[in-house]
């Protein structure tokens, strides 16, 4: 599953995340977010790290070009 992690910078250290089995997609340092791929067990381990929040990536969809509302 594609997940997004937030939390203090120390909690998002790449080594700590790698130990849990997270496959890091991107580390967005400026906004303090890590995105990556994780299975259910990995998500459990991630959630156990103090300060880390794990949320599932969501799709965003705007209307087609000719729709009445944009």
């Amino acid at each position: 599953m594609h997940v997004t992690l937030g939390g203090p910078a120390a909690a998002l250290a790449p080594e700590a995340l790698a130990e849990t089995g997270l496959v890091v997609d991107e580390h967005l340092e400026v906004v303090g977010v890590v995105t990556g791929w994780a299975d259910d067990d990995t998500i459990e381990r991630l959630r156990a790290i103090e300060g880390v929040t794990v949320e599932f990536e969501r799709g965003v969809q705007i209307a087609p070009p000719d729709a009445p509302l944009q």
Partner: peptide, 22 residues
């Protein structure tokens, strides 16, 4: 951060925000 068909993901949007701040 949204494709030509108008779809994207929160991860792409976050990457866009990160870029815009930079």
């Amino acid at each position: 951060v949204l494709s030509n068909s108008g779809s994207g993901t929160s991860g792409q949007i976050l990457a866009g925000i990160d870029w815009a701040i930079r």
